[in-house]
């Protein structure tokens, strides 16, 4: 069994209100390490056996069409475990 992971992030130039909110909350709790924070999302997709090239291509397609909004987001597809 393997895990195909899709990580989606807002493009760097796009405003990220959630990330900003986290960044401004950190120092209030005494965490002073962050210069900025950007928040994304991660999809873990379980498949039987080792992922085939075809499966990865399909995930790539799904990432483009469903999991991300290519107008404002980028994604990477990788295999874990």
């Amino acid at each position: 069994m393997a895990l195909i992971v899709v990580e989606v992030m807002l493009k760097p130039e796009i405003l990220d209100p959630q990330g900003q909110a986290v960044a401004s909350a950190l120092p209030r709790l005494g965490f002073n390490f962050a210069k900025s924070v950007r928040q994304g999302k991660r999809f873990e997709i379980e498949v039987e056996g080792t992922p085939t090239a075809e499966q990865l291509a399909q995930v790539e397609d799904a990432a483009h069409k469903l999991l991300s909004n290519p107008v404002i987001e980028t994604y990477v597809v990788k295999v874990e475990g």
């Binding site: 807002l10 493009k11 760097p12 130039e13 796009i14 405003l15 990220d16 209100p17 900003q20 909110a21 107008v71 404002i72």
Partner: peptide
């Protein structure tokens, strides 16, 4: 940096 976005993102809480 990457091409400038023409998409404006709103932040209603702001």
């Amino acid at each position: 940096p990457t091409k400038r976005p023409s998409v404006q993102v709103g932040d209603p809480f702001a």
